[in-house]
Design a binder for these strands. Structure first.
Lengths: 204, 204
DNA sequence: CGTTGTGAACGGCTTCACAGCT
DNA sequence: AGCTGTGAAGCCGTTCACAACG
């Protein structure tokens, strides 16, 4: 499935910097806690990248996966919401090396509009739709309070944004053709406490 | 499935503050983009909480879900890694109201150890295992660089931690009985670009 | 009547297992 | 000998559909 391809890509890049140049589905599977068959099926859906008896050539497969995922280009991204969380996202160095570049930041508060944060001038959300259209930005990261999330997403959709990464603890509505992914650390914690309840306290 | 229970809980709390006191699987399903059958099956796995012809009593169901998820108590949490990301996590106000309280923070860098951040004194990672054991902390949030993640997780497991929320872009290994969840915004973005490739650029 | 709870049917993802290639 | 690619089988989560109930 597509959502596992970035996982493979990351593992392969790691193996490459470790100095390897071939990986088998078995070695990848051990690394990622998956069955080798799963990995072969996933890759087989997109092409025949392996060599029987040997495995997958790592640089070649990295390149193929980047093509498939559209990561052979840099994607301009807009950030909406420059509060505490938004600023942390602006400062996070992990997006750029993976094909994303935050090119615009928006907020509704006059106290941050106009500020220059990490080389980006925060702009008023009122001008957002025009700017997104002019810049041809198709991806947005949303880090606004829950109460404003739906309105912001409606605006983004209206401006032609097709992929949204939402950090607020909500289940926003968007047309089917617009992809939305939620980043929700609280829910991740809450789904683990269930298991802690049914397990003894660790020995001291 | 258990991982959807926090989603229901959140939606129910929202409905409650909106002034409602009963919800049907259908109304919940609309809100969360899910089939009513899915919701009834999920809830039915844990008990019979509904009333035929009416639906689910919201305050009652909230309470039941909190019991099931173990959220009727406050969970002490440790944070490991107090860099830029770690500081943002320390300052994030969203954990406390949902049953989690960051009680300790650790880092390896002498330049941050000893600092008081948001009422918590950053401690040396060398003392981490003892402190976690003494405090009975079973949940940890890991925000250290990728290269150190596995070592940190090994230490946490060693100290009896049973649930780990990992912010670094890695696939760390842990014993089966230790739950690990990854927060990975980059992978979320990368799995969306695949769809952008196969879709026309939005009209300007 | 509206809605739950649930067995049965369905569908899709995962694993198996092996032929075929290197 | 080692490993891929892939049909077939198996499994598990989702949806259907309806009896039961307020």
């Amino acid at each position: 499935m597509v959502s596992r391809l970035p996982l493979y890509l990351r593992a392969l890049k790691q193996l490459l910097t470790d100095g390897l140049d071939v990986a088998s589905s078995q070695s990848l599977g051990r690394r990622l806690h998956m069955t080798p068959a799963q990995i072969r099926k996933d890759l087989g859906y997109f092409g025949r990248f392996g060599k029987q008896g040997r495995g997958y050539d790592i640089p070649y497969l990295i390149n193929e996966l980047e093509q498939i995922l559209g990561l052979n280009q840099e994607w301009p991204v807009a950030l909406v919401g420059v509060g505490r969380l938004g600023r942390a996202i602006l400062g996070y160095p992990g997006f750029n090396p993976e094909g994303f570049s935050i090119r615009a930041a928006f907020d509704s508060s006059p106290s941050v509009v106009g500020q220059n944060l990490g080389g980006i001038e925060v702009q008023s959300i009122k001008n957002m739709e025009d700017i997104l259209r002019n810049e041809g930005i198709r991806i947005a990261v949303v880090a606004v309070p829950a109460a404003q999330t739906q309105a912001v997403i409606d605006q983004l959709v209206n401006a032609g944004v097709q992929a949204i990464l939402n950090y607020s603890p909500t289940s926003p509505q968007a047309p089917r053709e617009v992809k939305v992914r939620n980043v929700d650390p609280v829910m991740a914690l809450q789904s683990m406490t269930y298991f802690l309840r049914s397990v003894p306290v660790p020995p001291r």
